[in-house]
Computed example of a mutant assay.
Amino acid sequence: MAFQASTSVEAEGWQHNLRAKLVELLGDFPGKRCELLPRVTETREFPTYTRETVLFQSRPNMTVFGYLLLPKDFETPGPTILCLHGHGRGVDDIVGIQEDGTMRTEYGEYQNDFALQCVDRGYAALAIEQFGFGHRRDDVACQRGAGNSSCQPSSGAAFLLGQTMIGWRVYDAMRSLDYLSTRPEIDMNRIGVMGISGGGTTTFYSAAIDERFKAAVVSGYFNTFRDSILSISHCIDNYIPGVLKYAEMYDIAGLIAPRAMFVESGTEDTIFPIDATRFAFDQAQEIFRVFGAEDQLGLEVFEAAHSFHGVGAFQFLDQKL
């Protein structure tokens, strides 16, 4: 199902077919969405923003934990970014919460508190805990310490059920949009999604599947399956059984067109080789071109290892949202 269309009409038909196949490969989604049952469990005031701890139900008996960050000067309804963390301590690590519960005084760690950066740029941010991390991991991982995840057993369980961890996390992202739609502060026509590493993975597939996302920032992930996921050892949560029988990563990027996607990657990233990122971006550009959407695709390469950069990315979001 690699991209071969030469007109926008052909391309739209291709998108429809590949998107349906991708959902199938991810393990499909529930036919009926359960009630969200949302609640706010804590509200904290900071000098420039308010942070709400929120819970809502994604599937029956599966609760999503997250933080809704609202700038003090936010003009409602306003633009919002769904923020998806990568491997590490989980969602706390992108909202400035240190392991001892205190707040960092400046952006830190490889993810650089990008949810707080969103707030500082004037966006509301919903930062959710990805399944298998932080507040949503098993007891064994909790006993091993803050930086340990339960990706391995949880992803294995998903495979046994004919599903995938990526599919579970994408569905949480989709239900996050359902939650945001209940909040009067949020402009649902200006929703972006942003993630680094494993969060970049979920960002990429969520934007490819759910067209409510108007812009996606994929940090430290976009590459080729051939040069990264297939060739370099990765956490099991990166794998989609059978995907290479149908499409490469740049084909899947074409499911986002003509909506906006920005890619950033470090030159010293050892798990997502930069030459393959450049190659995949060039291939994706050809697909966006057929849609007449070349200006909806952006790339920034920066001199660093696997980390969140966020320079060109926020300039891009400011234009698109």
Rank of each mutant, 00 (worst) to 15 (best):
W168I: 11
M174C: 05
L161H: 11
T164R: 09
L180C: 06
L180E: 04
Y171G: 07
G167E: 08
A157T: 05
L161C: 07
G167Q: 11
D178P: 04
D187W: 02
S154G: 12
G167F: 10
M165L: 14
Q152F: 14
L177N: 02
S154Y: 13
L180G: 00
F159K: 11
D172G: 05
R175N: 00
S181Y: 04
G156N: 15
Y179E: 00
S181M: 10
D178I: 00
P153H: 06
F159I: 11
Q163D: 13
R183G: 08
T164K: 11
T164I: 10
F159V: 06
G156L: 15
D187P: 02
G156K: 15
G167H: 12
M165F: 10
S155E: 14
A158F: 01
R175S: 06
P153I: 09
D178K: 00
Y171V: 08
L160H: 12
D172Q: 09
T164C: 09
L161R: 14
L161A: 13
A157Q: 08
L161F: 07
L161D: 12
A157C: 06
E185Y: 10
S176D: 01
T182H: 10
L160P: 03
Y171Q: 08
Q152V: 15
Q152H: 15
T182D: 07
G156H: 14
F159H: 10
G167W: 08
S155Q: 13
R175E: 04
Y171M: 08
L180Q: 00
L160W: 13
E185W: 05
S176Q: 09
A157L: 05
T182C: 06
Q152T: 14
G156D: 11
R175D: 01
T182N: 05
Y171F: 15
W168H: 15
S155G: 13
M165P: 02
G162F: 10
L161I: 02
D178A: 04
R169N: 13
D187G: 01
Q163T: 14
T182A: 04
Q163K: 15
I166N: 02
W168C: 12
Q163E: 15
Q163P: 05
G167V: 08
I186M: 06
V170F: 09
E185L: 01
Y179C: 04
I186G: 02
Q163G: 12
P184Y: 08
R175C: 04
D187Q: 02
G162S: 12
D178E: 06
R169Y: 10
A157K: 07
Y171P: 01
G167K: 10
Y179G: 01
L160V: 12
V170N: 06
S181I: 03
A158G: 00
S154L: 15
M165S: 11
